[in-house]
């Protein structure tokens, strides 16, 4: 899809769709794509009908991305640190189990 050629109304629809529900599907990649695609229309282009809405969705996507990344990093650090002591659960959650003690 070429965003330059779509109507403003359609842009708002796509942006809303990419925030929710598509955004929750490929955490956080769809949100990041949403931000990249619509940043220009939300903040730099001259005002148009629906820009406020696009701005709202882009900001929500950004907040979602940050929250998700923080949660993901915290989980990852905790998992790597505690995988051994979690015993059976740690092993079940691991895809590749390192060799040795």
């Amino acid at each position: 899809m070429n965003l330059e050629k779509t109507t403003d109304e359609e842009k708002v629809n796509v942006c809303r769709l990419y925030t929710n529900p598509v955004g929750f599907l490929f955490l956080p990649f769809a949100w990041v794509i949403n931000i990249v695609w619509f940043y220009k229309y939300a903040f730099t282009t001259p005002p148009f009908q629906g820009q406020a809405e696009i701005k709202k969705y882009v900001i929500r996507s950004a907040i979602g991305t940050i929250i998700f990344l923080i949660a993901f990093i915290i989980w990852n650090v905790e998992f790597q640190r505690n995988r051994q002591s979690w015993g059976a659960i740690g092993d079940t959650l691991s895809f590749v189990i390192p060799k040795g003690a």
Partner: peptide, 16 residues
């Protein structure tokens, strides 16, 4: 632990 990981990691890590 080893016998558990033999099963849990059998696809990706091989036997221990």
């Amino acid at each position: 632990v080893c016998m558990r990981r033999n099963i849990a990691g059998s696809l990706t890590s091989g036997g221990f």
